[in-house]
């Protein structure tokens, strides 16, 4: 059952909490087919949690997530797994299987889900590795790769089953400028050439804004701003301004909430 509407992923009225801490409070997000959508916000706003909710690894307290016409959390286990075959996800540090080499890592989902002959798997793996520029690294073990290469191999693995969408969890964190540039270009290129839909969770503003068609800013469990990069730059929202310009103080205060400073100093308490 495939929905042909313009929206691939629709999140409606989503609330989620961990213990007593509310992570999301009634948020709505729409992700268009074929677009690159960025979910941005300061650390600890639950951006990764959002990806896990979309992937069905976590259950929301309220609200629903519809991916390609299917309500993720109403699916049975088998159906959810069928849906996940069409979703790729790139984890923050690649999450490659450390006991097998690059080639076998990319071949892993193909061998698990298809009965293709090994010759055909070889061709597919080499094509995917070529797409991320690492065909020559097929015999290396994950421990021999740099952080950027790990993510590229993981990207090749994520596109191995030709998914309809890919979710990127902080793809740019801790990358040097060259591998950052490579990843930025790859994400856009793969999205357009393979007809994917991409969701990037990140707080690297410049890189993400350069390739994102649509940006959602999250803070305090709410969507505080939404629009293209240009729209957000011109938005009147104090919060969006602080985040995009990287100002140290603003709606997100520099100081962690505390008693009055003078009072605290003069009180002379033990701590």
């Amino acid at each position: 059952m495939s929905d042909t509407s313009d929206i691939l992923i629709s999140v409606r009225g989503l609330s989620f909490s961990r213990g007593s801490r509310q992570i999301f409070d009634d948020i709505d997000i729409d992700i268009k087919r074929g677009s690159v959508t960025a979910i941005m916000g300061p650390s600890g706003t639950g951006k990764t949690t959002l990806l896990r909710l979309i992937g069905g690894q976590l259950r929301p307290d309220k609200g629903n997530v519809v991916v390609d016409g299917e309500d993720v959390h109403a699916l049975r286990r088998g159906q959810l797994y069928q849906l996940r075959k069409r979703m790729g996800m790139l984890f923050q540090n690649g999450a490659l299987l450390t006991d097998i080499n690059v080639y076998d890592n990319v071949a892993f989902p193909l061998r698990e889900h298809t009965h293709l002959p090994e010759r055909l798997i070889r061709d597919l793996v080499l094509m995917k590795l070529h797409a991320v520029g690492l065909r020559g690294a097929r015999d290396l073990m994950p421990s021999e790769l740099s952080g950027g290469m790990l993510r590229r191999v993981a990207l090749a693995r994520a596109i191995a089953l030709d998914p309809m969408m890919i979710m990127y969890d902080e793809p740019f964190t801790g990358q040097d400028p060259i591998s950052m540039g490579v990843l930025v270009r790859l994400i856009r290129l793969l999205n357009d050439t393979l007809g994917l839909t991409s969701i990037i969770v990140s707080h690297d503003i410049a890189e993400t804004a350069a390739i994102a068609d649509d940006i959602y800013l999250l803070s305090g469990g709410k969507v505080v701003a939404h629009g293209s990069a240009d729209e957000l730059k011109q938005s009147g929202s104090e919060w969006a301004k602080q985040f995009i310009q990287g100002l140290p103080d603003g709606p997100v205060p520099f100081h962690y909430p505390a008693d009055d400073y003078a009072h605290d100093l003069l009180s002379g308490g033990p701590n």
Binding site: Q57, K85, F91, A95, T98, E112, A154
Partner: peptide, 16 residues
């Protein structure tokens, strides 16, 4: 494998 998200990655690849 759990700490390095390999198990999560398998789940997301639809492998139990």
């Amino acid at each position: 494998m759990k700490a390095t998200e390999q198990l999560s990655a398998m789940e997301m690849m639809a492998i139990d």
